[in-house]
Amino acid sequence: MSRTNLRLFALFTVAVFATAGAASAQADDTDEAWREEPRELEGRAMADGFSLMSRRDSELGSDRIEVSFSVDDASLRYSFVSLEEGNETVIVTRLAFLALVEFRDRDEDGRYGLGDEAVQRYDLATLDARMAPAEPVLEGGFAAVATYPLENRSRGDEGPLGGDTPELVPGELRFVFRMSPEVRIAPSGRVAPTEVAIDVALDRFPFQEGDTQVALETRFASNRPLVDVTDAASGLSVGEGVFSSRYAWPEMDAPPAAVLAEDGAVVAFSMARETASLGPLRLGAARTVGVPEEVVRFFTEGEPWVYATGALVALVAAGVPAVMRLREVR
């Protein structure tokens, strides 16, 4: 190969890689800018919960997010509506906080699952909860606190497990919901204005046994199918097309146990006895323009028999004529 050709080839190689890298980086930057662009945020307090409305109409996107929480059924509704021309969509997700479960970790995997023994269960929707109204916070965002009392059932006649007269100071489970009009820097990292962050704190949980742990059961459901469950260790996404809604959680020593369904999942977060907090859990919208979901689905994991069939057919189709031709030449 002449020097000129070598130079041309090297230039071509560098150009291809630079273009591919730049296109990929630009797509990532665009998605991040879409997520982190400042938005208008309004909050409204209600006796039994709160509702928030976040919207923007800019060059990056036109959409609105409606969030509401009902303390009585302990569920958060997150609705994302895209008004972008050609990309109109509505993704409704519901995150229900089902129960606190005291469990004995029979299979010793550090988390609550099917192989473990449930000692007692507090269904949150049955508890007499109270709501501190949503109120503005320093960054111009909103915060609201829902508190669920956990009365001790360990002695006496009443309660499903032979509970007694409740102790004077019951335990409590607190959820702190936060949403901001701009990116908020939290101890766990950046929280985008498209996200609702939920900190969970557990005080004085009334354990019945001395060798147990407690788990928070949640149910994530949507009107859209689950996508990209390969990253289920840090969260789950639902959606279609370029938009998705993601239920995410921070990295944990014992990752949560998840039972997946087509349109959602039940996810249980386990906490050791000494751990009194969890989070922040996050619920937020995302846009991914990098690779269309159809393309990702096309490139599914390998199937050995299909692979072997393809190889065999090609081997015969290409090999037999080649061998025959070589014999003729000889």
Partner: peptide, 23 residues
């Protein structure tokens, strides 16, 4: 659904092997 990608990858590898051997 049959994985077209698996089929194509198997075929690509086999054809490339045959052609490389001939070459």
């Amino acid at each position: 659904m049959v994985s077209v990608a698996s089929l194509a990858t198997g075929a690509l590898t086999a054809v490339a092997l045959v052609v490389a051997l001939v070459a």
